[in-house]
Design a protein around this nucleic acid. Structure first.
Lengths: 150, 150
DNA sequence: GTCCATGCAAACTGTTTGCACGCGC
DNA sequence: GCGCGTGCAAACAGTTTGCATGGAC
């Protein structure tokens, strides 16, 4: 059973240096509870340290992902979005009209996945469930099952 | 209730022209039951019609996606993969070692999603469930729960 | 014949990399 | 001080677009 450390502790105990830039990226993701993309993280980082570069943001994100501190999600926009790893797994819905992202938990999904993958002898490391459609606001008047398929 | 037409019928009844190139892309996806990316589709298409261009493949895929004839999946490689829309929804597992993609059905997942989204007033149009980990072959000796999180 | 679709090449977006300098340990 | 990490700019992959020509209807 893995003990939970602070991001800073994880970075150091994995043998990586704790640089100003890495700490900055961690902080930005820990503070913001949105799903930022690399560019947005870079912009925020630049606000606090004008010298940081986009390449470093990407390199930091790769390292943080590898150590499990952050997770990357594909939210249907064709590029990555990042968030600090949460204690309990959750999934995402994105609205096709307004772009809003709704997070939700779904323990049943994990159960079903676990059962299925046990049968198929698959060792699952990551689970991404991504829904898209229309949120409660944008879905008004969209009862015309035209592209509603579920 | 939407009637099922042949891809060709769907294209024409949506008011689009049925060109040699569009038919070719449809055929390639219908024949191959793999998850091809745009480049792979382009290579196969060139084999049958040397004049086709990659841009047209992309344009055709966009149109076929919009009409529901094909689906795009993000299989964790950072670029899109395409397959002909199947009658019953299914999901994907990709092996981190050998890259193999395993398809599986999971009606329970759809049920859970439907229930949750009903509560949250979300109208769901698309459901993507993507697992990654190690397949039965590559997973041997990987019992050391180090990065196994589910 | 009309107008949408195509081919080509150039543009664009997101991401990665090579290399010399900088800084955490 | 050693060696990993950074900044910069250039390279890269995947995808999109502008424009003149071609082909479906």
């Amino acid at each position: 059973m893995k003990t939970l450390h602070s991001p800073v502790g994880v970075i150091r105990s994995a043998g990586y240096r704790l640089t100003r830039q890495r700490r900055l990226v961690v902080d930005i993701l820990a503070e913001s509870h949105e799903h930022l993309d690399a560019e947005a993280i870079y912009q925020r980082a630049k606000g606090r340290d004008a010298r940081i570069s986009l390449a470093t943001v990407y390199r930091s994100l790769a390292l943080l992902k590898q150590t499990g501190i952050v997770q990357e999600h594909s939210l249907g926009e064709g590029h990555g979005h990042f968030e600090a790893t949460q204690p309990s797994p959750h999934y995402h819905f994105t609205c096709r009209t307004c772009g809003k992202v709704v997070e939700f938990e779904a323990p049943q999904v994990l159960g079903a996945v676990r059962r299925l993958c046990g049968k198929m002898q698959l060792k699952v490391v990551e689970v991404h469930l991504l829904l898209s459609g229309y949120c409660s606001h944008c879905g008004i008047g969209r009862m015309d099952g035209d592209d509603i398929q579920i």
